[in-house]
Computed example of a mutant assay.
Amino acid sequence: MADMSNWYQSKSLIVQEDLVDIICKKTCFVVDQQDIDGFLVILASYDISTAKQFLESFFAEYEGDEGVVLEQFVKDWCALAKVCLPRKLLKQRSPE
């Protein structure tokens, strides 16, 4: 635990209180220092640097390879979209 504590303390207060804490609360697969550091880099590439931005952008967390994740995301998104135009367009396209 000391290693995790030292790692956590090495982050700025904004990163600690904003992103690291909310990432730990909202995700199941981002579990250790390396995962969180990698996830912070990915978030930064999307200009996400605050908990508010993360919460506004975060939809769900999926496990698996790209194809499985994309398929599950589209299914979930369509379930929320109900009868909107994107769902109609997706129905017209083959899964490939």
Rank of each mutant, 00 (worst) to 15 (best):
L19M: 11
T50I: 09
F54C: 06
L85P: 00
A81Q: 13
C78A: 10
V31T: 10
D3I: 13
G67W: 02
E71D: 15
S94L: 12
Q92C: 06
E66G: 03
K75L: 15
I48N: 09
K11R: 14
Q33N: 15
D18G: 13
V15T: 14
A60T: 15
E96S: 14
S49K: 13
F29E: 06
S12H: 01
D76T: 15
V68I: 11
D32S: 11
M4A: 12
D76A: 15
A60Y: 11
C24L: 15
D37S: 08
F39Y: 12
G64W: 03
S12D: 02
R93Q: 14
V83H: 14
V69D: 03
F54R: 07
I23G: 05
V68L: 09
R87N: 07
S12E: 01
K26M: 06
V31H: 05
V30C: 05
C84M: 05
I42M: 10
V15R: 07
G64D: 02
D18E: 15
G64K: 02
E66C: 03
V20M: 02
F59Y: 11
A79K: 13
Y46F: 11
D37C: 01
V74L: 14
E61W: 08
V74P: 00
V69F: 02
D3H: 14
C78R: 10
C28A: 07
E96Q: 14
K26N: 06
Y46N: 02
Y46M: 08
R87G: 01
D37Y: 03
M4V: 14
K75S: 12
F59N: 00
L70Y: 03
V30D: 00
F58K: 04
L55S: 11
D37G: 01
L89H: 11
S94H: 11
D3Y: 13
F39K: 02
Q92K: 09
A79G: 07
Q72F: 00
